[in-house]
C-alpha cells in the first residue's frame, strides 16, 4: 500500500537515505498506520508540531498495546514527518 499512499504519510525513503534510518522510519510508519488506527482515525503527522508529538504519543501509548520500542519508532516517524 506504500506505493499509492497519501503523501501526508511518506515512506522511510522520503525521510532519510541511510538504510538503518529508512528502515526505522518504515517501521514507525507501519506501526502508526496499523496500531493507532485501531482506536481512532489517524492524525496526519503535520497537524501536530514536532515538539508536541512525543508527549502525544506517550499519552496515547498508555491506552494501547504497544511496547516502549514501538512507541519510540512511532514517535521518531511522526517527529521526522512533522519536521519536514
Amino acid at each position: 500500500m506504500v506505493g499509492c499512499a497519501d503523501a501526508r504519510f511518506p515512506a522511510g525513503l522520503e525521510l532519510a537515505t541511510e538504510p538503518a534510518a529508512v528502515s526505522r522510519f518504515d517501521t514507525g510508519r507501519r506501526l502508526y498506520l496499523n496500531r493507532c488506527s485501531g482506536c481512532h482515525a489517524l492524525i496526519p503527522p503535520e497537524q501536530i508540531s514536532a515538539d508536541r508529538w512525543p508527549a502525544e504519543v506517550a499519552r496515547m501509548a498508555k491506552r494501547s498495546v504497544i511496547d516502549s520500542a514501538q512507541q519510540q519508532a512511532i514517535t521518531d516517524y511522526l517527529v521526522a514527518v512533522s519536521s519536514r
Binding site: C4, S37, A41
Partner: peptide
C-alpha cells in the same frame, strides 16, 4: 486492506 486516512 487499506487505511481510510493514509491511503486514497
Amino acid at each position: 486492506l487499506a487505511d481510510a486516512v493514509a491511503d486514497p
